[in-house]
């Protein structure tokens, strides 16, 4: 099955599709946790791009893209922990995680 001239294009298209799905989820869902899930999908799509370029570009032994992806995974984990902590904190104050109902910013 050779649809594309190079396998890299296939990986890039899958990553683009996953990024668009994550963006659609983050922009259309009402629940704050679903928005965070969408952001996680977008970060993972970017990671797939990094790894795919690392694999197919010249000099993979320099490990540049691989390191970028590993640090990106670590930062995404920190982002998920803080984001979900914020959602739980907001839920305690506003008694809801519905973004359409969260229209005030006071403590």
């Amino acid at each position: 099955m050779t649809v594309f001239a190079t396998p890299l294009a296939g990986y890039l298209l899958v990553a683009a599709l996953l990024f668009a799905i994550g963006l659609a989820g983050a922009l259309t869902r009402r629940n704050a946790i679903l928005v965070l899930i969408g952001i996680e999908l977008m970060l993972n799509a970017a990671n797939l791009n990094l790894i795919a370029f690392w694999r197919y570009m010249p000099h993979p032994e320099a490990l540049t893209g691989m390191m970028f992806a590993i640090f990106s995974i670590a930062v995404a984990a920190a982002e998920a922990a803080v984001g979900l902590g914020l959602v739980i904190s907001i839920h305690r104050h506003a008694k809801t995680t519905d973004l359409d109902e969260m229209n005030k910013m006071k403590g």
């Binding site: 594309f4 001239a5 190079t6 396998p7 890299l8 294009a9 890039l12 298209l13 683009a16 599709l17 990024f19 668009a20 799905i21 963006l23 659609a24 983050a26 922009l27 259309t28 694999r55 197919y56 570009m57 010249p58 993979p60």
Partner: peptide, 28 residues
Amino acid sequence: AGLVIAAAVFAVLGWAVLQSEAGLPHET
């Protein structure tokens, strides 16, 4: 609006990938 934005982003990304496909490196 969110769906339109996401579809537009995917269209631009997919177009860019398909346009630059010839310049991408081959199997190493």
